[in-house]
């Protein structure tokens, strides 16, 4: 076959087959062990928030909008409230809403830390929202969220 025929054939195939196939696959491609666990996500959120009223200020969550490598997505969290010996961040959690194990990690700080900032790298099984929740020493709970689009097929964990 001449190259140009091959290329033309490929383009025709691409428009005819690949696009619908990819769409159909994106729904069914997640193996059962990687299925999201909404019950655990809700529980982790509720356990952390408790009876506090979550505030959407004072916590900065930085995650790329498009994650080109879903097996290592950089996440950076920091409390932007002015901290002192009396007011500090006690703990901070990061949740990946659609991951099989939504509670990605927990950071703990002490009065001695003097700041509340941390960064790590996540595995994301699919396109989803990443949440961060921080508990301050005065009982306030701060929340932040960011949607992340995962390139390719997501991480196999």
């Amino acid at each position: 076959m001449k190259r140009r025929h091959f290329v033309a054939g490929g383009v025709a195939l691409g428009t005819a087959l690949v696009v619908p196939a990819a769409r159909a696959q994106s729904k069914a491609a997640i193996p059962p062990q990687l299925a999201p666990n909404p019950a655990e996500f809700k529980k982790a959120m509720a356990d952390f928030v408790g009876r506090a009223k979550p505030l959407e200020t004072g916590l900065k969550l930085e995650v790329p909008v498009l994650a080109d490598n879903p097996s290592a997505v950089p996440v950076h969290v920091s409390v932007t409230l002015p901290l002192s010996d009396q007011l500090y961040c006690k703990e901070l959690i990061v949740l990946a809403e659609q991951n099989p194990s939504p509670l990605a990690c927990r950071f703990q700080f002490t009065p001695f830390t003097g700041s509340a900032e941390a960064a790590a790298r996540l595995r994301l099984s699919q396109t989803q929202a990443v949440h961060a929740l921080a508990r301050m020493s005065d009982g306030r709970v701060l929340v932040a969220r960011q949607n992340v689009t995962v390139a390719a097929s997501g991480c196999g964990m």
């Binding site: 097996s71 509670l103 990690c105 703990q108 700080f109 001695f112 941390a118 790590a120 790298r121």
Partner: peptide, 16 residues
Amino acid sequence: IFVWEPGISIAQNPYI
């Protein structure tokens, strides 16, 4: 000064 408790959603070769 700092504690980190990773879960299984943390990438391999953990960076902190």
